Computed example of a mutant assay.
Amino acid sequence: MIDYIKGHIVEKGIDYVVIETLGIGFKIIVPRSTLSHLTNTSEIIKLYTYMHVKEDGFQLYGFLTTNEVEIFKKLIAVNGVGPKAAVSILSTISIEGFYDAIRNSDSKAIEKSPGIGKKTAQRIILELKDKLTFAHDVKLDDLSNDVVDALLSLGYTKQESIKALEGVDCSNLESALKEALKKLMK
């Protein structure tokens, strides 16, 4: 429905931001990891969104990357995990930490999230273990392979290169390489 929202931050709360675009203020629930990257309340930002529809209305959830949105969607597809619980998990554990927890069946890392118990953490691991693509399992198209090869020739590891391509549009070799290098040089 609403893929992303780009505009000025007009308000920041504990778990949300209000972004004004075209005279409309959108209240968007965000994980702490996203909130911590939004430092200035007058800056223009772009948040990728997910709109959760329920009987009494709808709520927008926002994330800095498309990868975070995809993880959020996978989390809310798990039985017993709603949007608030998914945001809690993404606020407590980094994306890399989340992948590691799933890969290593580390339910304790997920249990650190407020509102997530042992059974829910174990269910998340069980249901997502086969649904997540880990860096060493990634299937790359020809253009993405070219970018990875270029990064390898510059001395980066394959895992670093693949991770740098997360969320990067690889339809243009030169721009994809520039974007990946920007991420790697941070």
Score class of each variant (00 low, 15 high):
H52A: 12
L35H: 05
A77S: 15
I93D: 01
K112N: 11
S113N: 05
D169G: 08
A85M: 12
N172K: 06
I110H: 02
T41I: 15
E43Q: 15
G57T: 01
H52Y: 13
L128D: 04
L38Q: 03
T49V: 08
R123G: 05
G62A: 06
E68D: 10
A135W: 09
K186I: 14
V78S: 05
G117R: 08
G62E: 00
I45D: 09
S33H: 13
G57N: 07
S88I: 03
S94A: 10
E166N: 12
A164Y: 00
I71L: 11
E174H: 10
L152T: 07
P83D: 01
V10W: 06
E70K: 12
K108R: 13
T120L: 14
E55G: 09
C170M: 04
K129M: 05
I14H: 12
I14T: 14
A86Y: 05
K163W: 12
V10H: 04
G7I: 09
T65V: 03
G167M: 03
G23F: 00
A86S: 09
C170E: 06
T66V: 09
S144E: 13
I124Q: 04
V138A: 14
D3G: 14
E96K: 11
A135S: 14
M51V: 14
A101K: 02
S94P: 02
A164V: 00
K139P: 04
K118M: 11
V17E: 04
V81R: 01
N40D: 15
D141N: 15
L35W: 07
L173K: 12
K131C: 07
G23E: 05
R103E: 10
F134K: 09
H52Q: 12
V69E: 04
K73Q: 12
G80R: 09
Y4H: 15
N40W: 10
M51T: 13
L128W: 00
L126C: 06
L22A: 15
Q59A: 11
A150E: 08
